[in-house]
Amino acid sequence: MTPEQIHKLITEGEFPEFSSGRELIETHISWVILCDEFVYKIKKPIRYSFLDFHSLEKRKFFCERELELNKRFAKDIYLEVLPIYEVNGTLKIGEHRGSLVDYTLKMRKLDPDKRLDKLLRRGEVSADDIKSLALWVADFHNKSAVIREKNILDVGVKFNDLTTQKELISTGLGEARARIIDWSVEVSDMFLQKNEALLTERLKAGFYRDCHGDLHARNIFMLPAPQPFDCLEFNDDYRQMDVLNEIAFLCMDLDAFEEHSLSDLCIQHYNLYFPAIRTTEERDLFEYYKAYRANVRAKVNSLRAGSESDMDKKEKMLAETQKYLGMMEGYLQALTIA
């Protein structure tokens, strides 16, 4: 679909049920339409190095893939994939006649005030909430498919991609911040070289699983029981990882909200039910994965800043970039390299 068709669908289109209003949320890869009771997600016709939604057939495939993967843990939220047809100039979801335009994933709408990032901002997340969430993640990982083949050093390649942002970061934040990138890449390379045998052993031991892939506060509801959603469907490689890499993302996100005690509690409680940290070397690996996740957040915010024309928004994104660069630096400084 095109942006014009999305506007037409929201203002004039026919949906399977009545809704008093329709709200559009746009991400870099999807359009999400919020109705009274349900949510409709439509993939943009785009192609990047890491995803391909360019053709109608691929968008249908990845809608179905997203439904399948999220039903592992959110079957009451993810409902069905529906076609969108144009009939006599009217766009209709769930219709089966006329001209096929696209596909949409239908989901049940949850209370937005119960999303974990909003609860964290309001200071409404307790230690018991985090224990419950850590237990949920451990149980999910225990049930997830084991991955036996994986390029264990690919995380280093992804880490080093931050160098593509050096020029923008130097211009926006100063050369001192940009120099941290070169230093971090050197530390990352040294750490992975030192721990290649450990990563190989963890792969053989079954610590690499088919995970969620994007497990952070915005993708979790507390109702009050934990309800993660929106797992990564468009690239298996980004979802199939060391379980420590996944839980590190969540803990890094808690750190970003300045909830360090909750972050520490999360990994401690997780490790009780899925003992993924057994040694001091694996404790270092957990810190490295947190650095990697902060690295990715820094890169994403830098990319957004580079394409933003609104100066206020650009400054906020650069501030976020600086925050995550600082977090990455702190995690890496805690590592044992020698």
Results as ranks from 00 to 15, higher is better:
Glu86Cys: 04
Arg177Thr: 10
Ser188His: 12
His260Met: 00
Gly172Phe: 01
Glu201Ala: 15
Asp236Glu: 14
His269Lys: 08
Leu318Pro: 01
Leu116Gln: 12
Ser99Val: 15
Asn70Arg: 06
Lys118Thr: 09
Lys106Thr: 01
Val243Phe: 01
Met311Asn: 09
Ile33Gln: 06
His260Ile: 00
Ala197Trp: 06
Lys194Tyr: 08
Ala197Phe: 11
Leu133Cys: 09
Leu153Gln: 14
Lys58Tyr: 06
Arg22Asp: 10
Ala145Lys: 12
Thr2Met: 01
Gly172Glu: 06
Gly306Asn: 08
Asp76Glu: 15
Ala205Cys: 01
Glu233Tyr: 09
Leu332His: 05
Ile220Gln: 11
Glu37Lys: 14
Tyr48Glu: 12
Lys299Val: 02
Met311Gln: 11
Leu100His: 07
Asp128Pro: 00
Glu86Ala: 03
Arg59Ser: 03
Tyr331Pro: 04
Leu34His: 14
Cys231Leu: 08
Val155Leu: 13
Glu259Gln: 15
Gly21Leu: 02
Leu285Asn: 07
Leu9Ser: 07
Asn142Ser: 14
Leu198Thr: 08
Ile181Arg: 13
Glu80Tyr: 00
Cys63Gln: 04
Leu91His: 06
Val157Asn: 14
Tyr292His: 15
Met317Phe: 15
Phe62Leu: 09
Arg177Leu: 09
Asn88Gly: 05
Asp128Met: 04
Gly306Cys: 01
Leu119Cys: 11
Glu329Thr: 15
Ala256His: 10
Leu318Gln: 02
Leu153Asp: 12
Arg283Ile: 02
Leu318Asn: 02
Leu168Gln: 03
Glu175Ala: 10
Ile152Gln: 08
Phe274Ala: 13
Pro226Lys: 04
Arg278Tyr: 02
Leu100Asp: 11
Val32Asp: 08
Leu215Cys: 03
Ser144Asp: 07
Arg47Ile: 07
Val187Thr: 15
Arg47Trp: 00
